[in-house]
Design a protein around this nucleic acid. Structure first.
Lengths: 230, 230
DNA sequence: CCAAAAGTGTTCCACCTACACCCATGG
DNA sequence: CCATGGGTGTAGGTGGAACACTTTTGG
């Protein structure tokens, strides 16, 4: 290459998790090394010479948090000079979703502690990680409206009210329960199972599941998933 | 940093241009250096130590092609090991739109030749640039439907038929002229000027202009631009 | 029987869709 | 007067939005 560039390449992940009827959370680690030692930060780290970017994210997540991801996509690359006080580092950020209870989080290399933080209780973050998080939240909101990614945050089988609650939580707006249910069911991509769940009080709910095969075949025929909110 | 990583960081740009009533084109350079010497490629190059990623794109574009961009946004980062036969290079790709006639393209450093290629006449490209281009085309198609970016491809003042033609060209589908015009005008973000244009034959057309100020203020009130196609 | 959450239909209105003819100019 | 592209209105249908009561369970 024509000049001796010295820029490092890292990956960072914003991983969202959702627990039935609670707020949406993201996964953070407490840094065990300088800079920003003892600050909370997004899991991530330098890319190894011979691994793909996606592998790097998954490896770092596994190493630092023990979490394996259900849905992962690239978010954005951050590269302003000065965003890391040591070298110049370009961070390629990823956006991930995990199903609840699919993880036993554990701290490890470079991380003193790992924790899920509800979105309304996010602490100060290292580097420009607040900016990355902000973009991830926007992406999640936007995608929820035109791709059925919400299912990657729910258990494989879920009561309809979980889906409703997920949407109203993330979009921070109310949705008419009847219209929402009608709309989702009209697409035919969510199926009733014959199971019934009882969580706490009230009438027990039927469990539903997302039919990805059906969804994929509809997509091929030009189907377009869309949820609007009033 | 904890290990001696040797990955280079580059930027590449997919720049779309549109000339009244013609096909959509992208800007390519003919490489003057190895590897892929004499192949056509997207303009781009290594990021300098102290410049932002956006600056890097704009600098490379100016150096290699003489083009200054009207609209620029980050597209995606490509980083598979082996995508560059020399070192490992992570390329952060950008997506740009320019107004026609706003450029005098000229070859320069590292580029033997610069040329606009209509989308249906794209030659073989260096590296994984076909993949980047593919993604850029998808992004353009998708964005056209929910953001008024088409205006950045047209002259400041344009006949309505240019806008129509732009949409039908990019979306590769027909749009009902009356409905399209009604829809766009109903938003109130496109204004009639009192100018009349005569291009070649037929009845002369009124010229319109996009009112960005109006658009921005509508956005603040929750307005949502959207074009559907049948 | 009370509390809590699940389940369910209908009406109205806005907007999208389909569709074809006349107009202004240049040659 | 012919060719070329510009400009325009209406009717019917679809789908989104608004809206409240009944059902099932546990305590």
């Amino acid at each position: 290459m024509s000049y001796n560039q010295n820029i490092k390449v890292a990956v960072d992940a914003v991983v969202f998790g959702y627990e039935s009827k609670k707020n949406l959370s993201i996964l953070l680690i407490k840094r065990g090394v300088e800079p920003y030692k003892n600050s909370w930060a997004l899991p991530g780290g330098l890319v190894l010479e011979n691994e793909s970017l996606e592998n790097a994210v998954q490896r770092e997540l596994l190493e630092e948090t023990g979490v394996q991801i259900d849905y992962l996509e690239q978010l954005y690359s951050f590269g302003k000079p000065g965003r890391d006080p040591r070298n110049r580092v370009v961070s390629i950020s990823y956006f991930g979703l995990v199903r609840p209870y699919h993880f036993t989080i554990k701290a490890d290399t470079d991380a003193d502690e790992v924790k899920w933080f509800p979105l309304d209780e996010i602490p100060d973050l290292a580097f420009d990680h607040h900016e990355i998080l902000k973009m991830a939240k926007e992406r999640l909101k936007a995608k929820l409206l035109y791709q059925p990614i919400g299912f990657d945050l729910l258990s494989k089988e879920f009561p309809f009210s979980d889906l409703e609650h997920l949407y109203t939580t993330i979009l921070e707006s109310n949705i008419d329960r009847r219209n929402f249910r009608k709309k989702i069911l009209s697409y035919g991509i969510v199926e009733e199972t014959n199971k019934i769940a009882q969580f706490g009080t009230g009438r027990p709910a039927k469990l539903f599941k997302f039919n990805k095969t059906k969804y994929d075949s509809l997509i091929k025929k030009g189907f377009h998933f869309e949820i609007k909110f009033a």
